[in-house]
């Protein structure tokens, strides 16, 4: 469960986000769409504390980050938050000096203090689930783009987060791989995963999301169930965006 209330973000006087509010129910997928510079990636980064909120609040599960928190308290909360919210970056940022297996087990072993055997067991299961059973001993640079992305997803999932955030997951994928990704993600949602996905591809979001949020100029213009937003957008700006991209 994610709750965002009157969220605002300013950097050096420029307001990047203003008055954003929405909720994401457990086991659902929220798709965030919008043009470049609309603030959608910043919004996503606010959800796991990579960007600090300057107005309003975000709440993931029972961890609440609001504007004006003291530094120490903020860091303490972010630490809790990040154990519950995983992220898959647009550029993935796999660790090039670690094998695929070590990429996945690093955080569970070092952060959650899981026994190595247990962490590796889980890593192998997750790799098998995304069809990368053989890749465990390999190094990221030897994998294709699609394979690397699935490793990044597994790396985030290995922390057993309640929420998984995705930034532009299809930017490096061809249409066929995008379609496969939809299937992979839906399977994890079926197993109880909540997700927030930022993408400029309406087609991809149509396949994967339950709810849609349209961002423009740092504002949440439209929020609602996927079918409703796509078929009968209430705001003319949403209508324009959907028409242009199709």
């Amino acid at each position: 469960m994610i709750r965002v209330e009157g969220l605002g973000k300013s950097v050096g006087g420029a307001r990047i986000l203003r008055g954003v509010s929405f909720r994401v129910e457990p086991r659902t997928v929220l798709g965030i769409m919008g043009a470049s510079g609309s603030g959608k990636t910043t919004l996503l980064r606010c959800l796991n504390g990579l960007e600090r909120v300057t107005e309003g609040a975000v709440e993931c599960e029972d961890v609440r980050l609001e504007a004006g928190l003291a530094e120490k308290e903020y860091q303490r909360r972010v630490k809790h938050l990040r154990r519950r919210v995983g992220m898959v970056f647009q550029h993935l940022y796999l660790f090039p000096h670690l094998s695929v297996l070590a990429n996945i087990t690093e955080a569970p072993v070092q952060v959650l203090k899981k026994p190595r055997a247990e962490a590796e067991q889980l890593a192998h299961e997750l790799l098998e689930a995304v069809g990368l059973k053989q890749a465990a001993p390999r190094y990221p640079e030897s994998l294709s783009g699609g394979e690397q992305q699935r490793v990044a997803i597994v790396r985030a999932l290995a922390m057993r987060p309640e929420v998984l955030l995705f930034d532009e997951p299809t930017s490096a994928l061809d249409p066929r791989r995008s379609f496969e990704l939809v299937a992979v993600l839906r399977r994890f949602v079926g197993q109880g995963q909540t997700m927030v996905i930022v993408s400029h591809s309406i087609k991809f979001l149509e396949g994967v999301a339950d709810f849609l949020l349209y961002m423009e100029g740092g504002e949440a213009v439209e929020f609602g169930a996927k079918e409703r937003v796509l078929r009968e957008p209430r705001d003319p700006r949403t209508r324009d965006f959907l028409r242009q991209t199709d």
Partner: peptide
């Protein structure tokens, strides 16, 4: 080392020290 490496480590719950020691330093 790209800044994203550090952010990736943070988003996995690593502390700055741990991220530095295990992710940034070896690279």
């Amino acid at each position: 080392i790209p800044r994203g490496q550090l952010e990736a480590a943070y988003s996995l719950g690593m502390s700055p020290l741990l991220a530095f020691r295990r992710i940034i330093l070896p690279q």
